[in-house]
Design a protein around this nucleic acid. Structure first.
Ligand SMILES: [Mn+2]
Ligand SMILES: [Mn+2]
Ligand SMILES: [Zn+2]
Ligand SMILES: [Zn+2]
Lengths: 141, 141
DNA sequence: TTTCATGCTTGTAATTATTACATCTTCGTG
DNA sequence: CACGAAGATGTAATAATTACAAGCATGAAA
């Protein structure tokens, strides 16, 4: 928890109870949670926590590059404690979002493509995860 | 228009007026339009067109792999007449979504990663486009 | 050609994710 | 302790999408 606090203060941000808890939640849940999942995970121990605080805080964290954001599942934003570039896999059966072994794309080393400045690279793989493939063996195709 | 009709019928789909217009719109607007953009583009000549029809139709097209879908801009889905694998760039200044020269990632040739079956590969690059970079020369960084 | 069934389209209502905003709280400083 | 700014909260508004019931079109069967 001290480390979390340091991380916040190293960016010049005040380490409020809410900010620390939200950042800690992301650190301890590397599942790329949504706002709703973070809310449900924290509201038990912080009954007055507001979803708006979570939105604001995540936005702030993104601006300070404390976390990273994903839009792999389409309808909702997901968040990641990890900020170093890596790739993601989304299972269309069970909805899990997981990190995959770094696929190194030539573009990541290139700052510009056709004159456009690249700030972020997102590689999203979608399909059916190992787990769901196993379960559906013999079941429905 | 005949080609559009053939394309629909080749997938065993009925070629209704709405379906043809929607598919034609995507063919003629390679800007990765949103549902709203498609609606605004077509409602003039089809005043009774419903957004629901657009949602349903795009869903159907996706299921039959007539088109492809993107979630690069976060809040809304975008659609692409092009179905062969290619990469996209999103400008955080002006919101344009454009195709970029094919970046060939090793994963595209691989059907499985860590036991997960890959059906789709999306490479999204985000940053500031050539145009916006030019405009802001001398202006704000 | 009428009849009928089925698939397609429409409009409205409901849901979900997100943002806007006014108010209340907290916390460091003097 | 008092003040002021930053932070948190709750409610209302928006935006995108889905659910659903009802109407419409089309093509095969009679
Ligand atoms: Mn990750
Ligand atoms: Mn494209
Ligand atoms: Zn799965
Ligand atoms: Zn731009």
């Amino acid at each position: 928890m001290k480390l979390i606090q340091d991380k916040l203060e190293s960016k010049g941000l005040r380490s409020s109870q809410q900010r620390m808890k939200i950042l800690q939640y992301l650190d301890q849940h590397r599942t790329h949670p949504t706002v709703e999942e973070i809310y449900n995970g924290l509201v038990k121990e912080m009954p007055t926590l507001s979803r708006t605080t979570i939105y604001n805080t995540l936005q702030l964290f993104l601006e300070h590059a404390l976390i990273s954001g994903l839009t792999i599942s389409g309808s909702e934003s997901r968040f990641d404690f990890e900020t170093t570039p890596h790739s993601h896999f989304f299972c269309k059966e069970c909805g899990v979002v997981m990190d995959v072994e770094k696929v190194d794309c030539p573009c990541e080393n290139r700052g510009v493509i056709s004159g456009n400045r690249i700030d972020e690279v997102h590689l999203y793989l979608k399909g059916v995860c190992k787990n769901c493939l196993t379960k559906s063996k013999g079941g429905k195709k």
